[in-house]
Design a protein around this nucleic acid. Structure first.
Lengths: 120, 120
DNA sequence: TTCTATCTTCGACGAACATCGAACAATCGG
DNA sequence: CCGATTGTTCGATGTTCGTCGAAGATAGAA
């Protein structure tokens, strides 16, 4: 149907509003993903190990992408994800850094998202 | 039924998790309320002028209260609301300040919540 | 071309959510 | 005691959300 080739659509930062962004950050799995990506490195989709089905993981990544938080790059058959840190910082100053600092601590209700065995 | 006298229940900061807090901050009306309270002053419930029915406003204030963001005080027949700034800062450092800074700007999707004519 | 790996989309489900009006409880003033 | 004021709760409605499995689409390997 869609577009592994049409390159997953990414919103312009100007088009984003605060409620949308907050909502994207209001889920344990998505916070776990953001935490995993917090070092700024790009990660392969297939290396992401979250406690949900692949279809659900795809959904969560779409929500993060739609909220301007992550960028997805397609390379052949595989996908890579990373934070849009700099751009996001320009639109919502401080929000990502603050959230990452909080999501990094234990007991904050963030899901355990890690990398599959063969880490990069 | 309940308890204008049992004093609206407020959670302990340790019992709060990040997804809950983010969710509370993911609504235009609630962000508008938080913005209105951002100066730290206590406001009378009846002075709050939000574009929703009273029952809905009551609901939103309950969500904020349950997320540890606001505190409600009852004095006789009337209610007063204020932010739990200091306590909240201790549990989620930086989050409230960052959010308030962002909610204060235009074009961020925050609802227009103000005070009724007779402002305090 | 055919098969395989890699995501994405579809369709469905139950749960949670925002919203309203009406009914209710509590307090204060006659 | 009666009535007005002030929020809160209830019940209902329509929407959105998180989740899954199955089916689809694409790129590369065989």
């Amino acid at each position: 149907m869609i577009d592994r080739m049409a390159a997953a659509t990414h919103p312009s930062m100007e088009d984003l509003d605060l409620p949308t962004v907050m909502h994207a950050l209001a889920d344990p799995i998505r916070l776990g993903l953001v935490r995993l990506l917090s070092d700024g490195e790009e990660r392969a989709w297939g290396d992401l190990d979250a406690p949900v089905a692949n279809s659900t993981l795809s959904h969560h990544l779409k929500v993060l992408r739609s909220a301007g938080i992550t960028r997805t790059r397609e390379e052949g058959k595989r996908c890579f994800v990373r934070l849009r840190s700099d751009e996001f910082e320009g639109r919502f100053p401080g929000l990502l850094d603050t959230t990452l600092a909080l999501a990094g601590e234990a007991g904050t209700g963030v899901a355990d998202v890690r990398l599959h065995s063969a880490a990069a």
